[in-house]
């Protein structure tokens, strides 16, 4: 089986995978990083969003072999080095941005990608960016509020940590 080498949340990893192994399968089953969720498995819901070389992708619709050598960041990589919640994660907690929590990893990763591209998004821009992230609890209102709060906190600080 071909070998895939990645840097995942700063850690170099190498695994033998089948050609058909999806990135999300490698993350969850191969590396035990079960924070990344599989919701629909048809690239609609966004629960599996991770960053590959700084870009948000749906990890259920990317083959692990196709991103050999890439840097991957998952929800596990969003916490601070001491294990406390990162700015976006804390904002979701503070603003009740999660109900059942299933979509949250993807929401946080999409939010982080949005705030990198656009540090001060309008409500409409946030909602448009979350087009590919579905919350089955329909908790969008507080998710948007959480992202607005995170944006405000991050722009108030000299260095954006997320």
């Amino acid at each position: 089986m071909p070998k895939v080498s990645l840097k995942v949340n700063g850690r170099a990893v190498s695994r033998d995978v089948e050609g058909r192994t999806l990135l999300v399968e490698l993350l969850r089953d191969g590396l035990g990083l079960t924070g990344t969720h599989v919701g629909c498995d048809t690239s609609q819901c966004g629960a599996c969003v991770v960053h590959v070389d700084g870009v948000a992708l749906k990890s259920c619709t990317v083959f692990a072999s196709d991103i050999d050598g890439a840097e991957v960041r998952t929800i596990e990589g969003m916490a601070n080095p001491d294990g406390s919640l990162g700015v976006i994660q804390a904002a979701f907690q503070d603003n009740h941005g999660l109900q059942c929590g299933f979509c949250t990893p993807g929401m946080v990763m999409s939010a982080a990608a949005l705030l990198t591209e656009n540090p001060n998004p309008s409500e409409a821009e946030i909602r448009a960016y979350l087009e590919g992230n579905i919350c089955r609890c329909t908790g969008y209102h507080n998710i948007v509020k959480s992202i607005q709060a995170a944006a405000a906190q991050m722009s108030a600080r000299p260095v954006a940590a997320e």
């Binding site: 966004g46 969003v49 948000a56 992708l57 999409s110 087009e131 590919g132 992230n133």
Partner: peptide
Amino acid sequence: IGDPAVRNR
């Protein structure tokens, strides 16, 4: 087209 993550790929 699609959504941001789909457009990235």
